[in-house]
Amino acid sequence: MKKLLFSCIITSIAFCFQNLYSQGITEKMVDSLIKEAPAFSIHKDNFFISGVPLNEEITKSTADAKYQISFKQLMTRNTLPWDTYLFLTYTQKAFWNIYENSSPFQEINFNPSIGFGKPVYNKNNRLVGLASLMLEHESNGRDSIFSRSWNSVNLEYSFMLNPKLKLTTEAWLPFSYKTGNPDLLDYIGLAEANLEYDIIPKKFMAELMLRKGLEWNWKGAYRARIFYRPFKMSNQYFMLEWFNGYSESLVNYTEHVNMIRVGYVIKTNELDILKQ
């Protein structure tokens, strides 16, 4: 009951906050943009970054590289009931001990999903948010005592708090996760929030992710990112990332991580429709 209540609170807060700012484009314009959008696109940010720990000695074993590849395929446009559309996503995140001899991979996480997306409008038929309901799987593709996997039904909602500040909240109902990682929720919780602020639109921006485990302790995580775009007419950025907390990877989800990394990112424009 406590878990369900927590997820409901997070989702309710998101829908309440969306009313603070609603100056979106019309439903007709949204329909047109969805019809014209490419079927294949970037889902989450694609990046390659490398860095060092802040809470232990810097060595070839503790320094690493992290990269992510993520894409989305629209299966339908806005032709399904209730103005929804069907999509598939795939995200792969890897942790690479690139500075060690033979440069082994510490872990590769695989995260496919299938879901429904829906634009949300106010009473004036203006876009105020984007919602999605997804069935997700995440695993690290390993066996024995190193095997980690979980499945979930996720509800995500994104909206603008003001012209420069976007909030994305995501709550999940997990299942089939107790083999290999029975206490996973104590570290990842049931929801997370992501804030993105445009310091200089399309040039310089900051991001903050917050996540809290279920137990009454400090287990959870926050991740801060700063993006800088050096080139015009491009979605390529330099990124500085600081991750502090638990469950950055699945195999070591119970271990505290405090890493700072820098590198190159191709940013997604999936939610830019909210800024129009």
Rank of each mutant, 00 (worst) to 15 (best):
F95P: 00
F87I: 02
S139G: 09
N109P: 05
N269S: 07
N125R: 13
F40N: 04
F146K: 13
K118H: 05
I42S: 03
W242S: 10
F87S: 10
T254M: 06
C16V: 06
G24S: 02
Y177A: 05
W218S: 13
Y228E: 03
R126P: 02
N269T: 06
L127W: 01
T76F: 14
L4K: 11
M29F: 05
A221Q: 10
N154S: 12
F6W: 11
M134I: 12
M259N: 14
T89S: 04
Q23W: 03
G24W: 00
T59Y: 00
Q92M: 11
S61M: 03
S12V: 04
I58V: 13
H43S: 05
F6K: 12
A63S: 15
N124Y: 12
D45C: 00
W218A: 13
T79W: 09
F17E: 10
L74E: 15
I114L: 09
V128Y: 07
F6N: 09
T168Q: 13
K203I: 00
Q23P: 03
R126K: 15
T62L: 03
I108V: 11
R126F: 00
E170N: 15
R142S: 08
G129F: 07
V153T: 14
P81W: 03
I98Y: 08
A14S: 07
A14I: 01
F231R: 08
A39T: 09
F116V: 05
R77L: 04
N122I: 01
A131V: 04
Y67Q: 05
N55H: 10
S102T: 07
G245C: 05
I108F: 01
E138P: 07
Q92L: 05
L165D: 07
Y187D: 04
A37L: 00
M205G: 14
E192T: 08
S132E: 15
Q236M: 14
M134D: 15
R77D: 15
K123H: 11
G189Q: 03
I266G: 02
V257F: 13
Y85W: 15
L274T: 03
E196N: 12
Q236V: 07
Y85N: 14
L130H: 07
R211Y: 00
P174F: 01
W218E: 10
K232G: 14
G263Y: 08
T11F: 12
